[in-house]
Write a protein that binds this DNA or RNA. Sequence first.
DNA 1: TATTGTTATACTCTATAACTATA
DNA 2: TATAGTTATAGAGTATAACAATA
Lengths: 137, 137
Amino acid sequence: MDDTWELLMDLVMAERARIPQIAAEFRLSPPQVHALRVLSPEQPLPMGRLACALGCDASNVTGIVDRLEARGVVERQVVPGDRRVKRIVLTGEGGRLWRAHHERLVADVPLVSGLSADEQRALHDLLAKVVAAPALG
Amino acid sequence: MDDTWELLMDLVMAERARIPQIAAEFRLSPPQVHALRVLSPEQPLPMGRLACALGCDASNVTGIVDRLEARGVVERQVVPGDRRVKRIVLTGEGGRLWRAHHERLVADVPLVSGLSADEQRALHDLLAKVVAAPALG
DNA sequence: TATTGTTATACTCTATAACTATA
DNA sequence: TATAGTTATAGAGTATAACAATA
């Protein structure tokens, strides 16, 4: 079953195209979506940690956060202990935007509709195992 | 099993990050990889069709093909019947580059390693069914 | 001296609109 | 007039390197 991986990659490539499309419906870029996703569980992060989560250089995050902040969906907060650090938090507006986007992304479920209930359950359990694997941290 | 879809999206998001990384190892951008992927099965395409396959505006494809052509991995060919059309073909060098990239992408198989042989087979069969669904055309 | 975040620079991708050449 | 592709323009993401403020 060597090509299980290739099937997964096919899925990823096919679904990849949907992400910027749905993001654009909310006037968001993919990195902006990613940032909101990381911050959404009421988890403020300093710029550096956010850069890490986004998998890009810290210098990019400055611009990404600039644009999100100009839109009022995130805020830079000063951290009492260390005045170098700026902590990024989602605003109420940002939370609403993120939830709306996420519902839209999950709402349209074309893929699993071709499977029976039993098959869907089996796929779910296998994927859960895969996602829980250490490689995906 | 409503969250099967969400698990799939988690996978997609996690794997998304690997694509530009591995592409960069071959000094390719994601759209360039996508273009080579589309052209690789010995299937030359005119600019417009390539834009369609890449899901972006035709004006972008000019630049993408410019850079690939400057590198010698694709060529613009004139089509006899209609002198407006330019057909993009992969060069021998381009074919080698694409195969090297694809092997590298598929070589590293971290995800399915956490499953037993039976589980891998089951996942394979379910994914095959999902990928074959009309929504993925 | 080391760290956090920003700025400067340069390149790629992106869409829109205007343009050229051909049909 | 309509179509295929290009060019011009502007905005966003990307990395590298240099920088300021703080530790």
